[in-house]
Design a protein around this nucleic acid. Structure first.
Lengths: 238, 238
DNA sequence: ACCTGAACACCGTTCAAGT
DNA sequence: ACCTGAACACCGTTCAAGT
């Protein structure tokens, strides 16, 4: 019996760059970075490789466009970026950070590529929007202008580092097979930490319990709060 | 005229897993993740693919081994991990962080893979060593045991996020061609930030000057200090 | 036990040809 | 202007065969 191949019927709507990017995001979500191939894309879009190359210059650009689309969406879902309420910048930083965290967890393939994409599009792409959203709250926190760049960068780097690590953990747990889910992955890692040599790893061993029991979002927000506390202690009176 | 191919002469020493990993690191350093292929590896080691597969199960494992080797080296170069001087945990955190930062900058291919490798080898690999080295200093800072995991994680995530972004920036600058070096990359990014719409990006525009003038290491350490200040403010008296 | 190298099933990308 | 699909130069991995 031949595979169903439900998408192979003739395409009715025209091929556009947006439709290609959308299909790329779907493939990435379903099967990770390995899942995005021009063959899979042509099959899903019922077309040939040449048609895709008409709209998109190459695979790197396609990956960049997919990253851009998904991050832009996450930022748009955050608090209204043009009118921060000056009484709650801390809450807004938490909300924005959590939005990025959630987006990276929804699209784990972002983890390995976000840094590269931010570097590539540092001028025109998504980086200025992230820096602007968080930078405004840093300003509202009372940080003087000389500190904006350091404080905002620290926030961005923490958020991307933590979210990236989280997504990588999730991807690893998933790749270990369907018998090992997220909590099973945490459990087995915690058990391994507890089994380390007490001479060499006293601190890691005593962190194992917290690793096992922690909630990802809570842990992530705890780190955001730590960075915020550092910003306040360093730059502002209270 | 045939290409020189200076490495193609007969191999004198035996093939070992270590030599393969070493060659893999060299290829990654020279040409990035795209530079690591089994063909390049067989040519450089004067052997066939089957020989490599005898020592290494597949490319993913080879990449993991290369990451492990390079991070282990960076950690070993840090302050002696078994006897932290309790009077200077702050300085030791800075030194350890800077060691990781430098390693990732020396080997930019780490940027895209470190999160995945940490997740993979969370039990046996390099993650426990990073958490142990930084965790001991967090303990020495006076943080109570309940805070060790959150504080250490925040530090690790900031360090990996910042170093990863920095390496990605460097890789992008390099890939833009030999006419654009690191400072040229910063300059053109700063200029682009200054050219953004003043209505939409007031804060980013005013950060452009600091972006142009900043020193990477200083900026990185400034972030480390911010996180440390947050840890102190949250968990310790002073 | 360790290595060889041809072969397989892929992959991104190009391009002459069609409409 | 937009699309087709065969073809090209790769890639990771396998495996019968050698030593």
């Amino acid at each position: 019996m031949a595979p169903p191949n439900r998408r192979a019927q003739r395409r009715t709507d025209a091929l556009t760059r947006d439709r290609i990017v959308e299909a790329a995001v779907d493939l990435l979500d379903e099967a990770g970075e390995r899942g995005l191939t021009f063959r899979a894309l042509t099959e899903r879009l019922a077309t040939g490789p040449g048609a895709i190359y008409w709209h998109v210059p190459n695979k790197d650009e396609l990956l960049a466009a997919a990253t851009d689309a998904v991050i832009a969406e996450a930022l748009a879902a955050g608090p209204h970026s043009d009118a921060p309420r000056s009484d709650a910048p801390r809450e807004e930083v938490r909300a924005l950070s959590l939005g990025l965290f959630a987006a990276i967890n929804r699209h784990p393939w972002l983890a390995g590529n976000l840094a590269a994409q931010l570097a590539r599009g540092a001028s025109a792409g998504v980086a200025p929007r992230i820096f602007e959203s968080l930078g405004r709250r840093v300003r509202a926190l009372g940080v003087p202008a000389e500190g904006w760049f350091v404080a905002t960068s620290a926030l961005v780097h923490y958020v991307l580092g933590a979210a990236g690590q989280n997504a990588a953990n999730a991807a690893t747990a998933r790749s270990l097979g369907s018998d090992v889910d997220r909590s099973g992955f945490l459990e087995s890692t915690a058990a391994a930490w507890e089994g380390l040599d007490p001479e060499d790893f006293p601190v890691v061993r005593s962190m194992a319990g917290q690793l096992r029991d922690h909630d990802d979002r809570e842990q992530f927000l705890g780190g955001v709060d730590l960075v915020l506390a550092g910003i306040t202690a360093t730059y502002a009176a209270g």
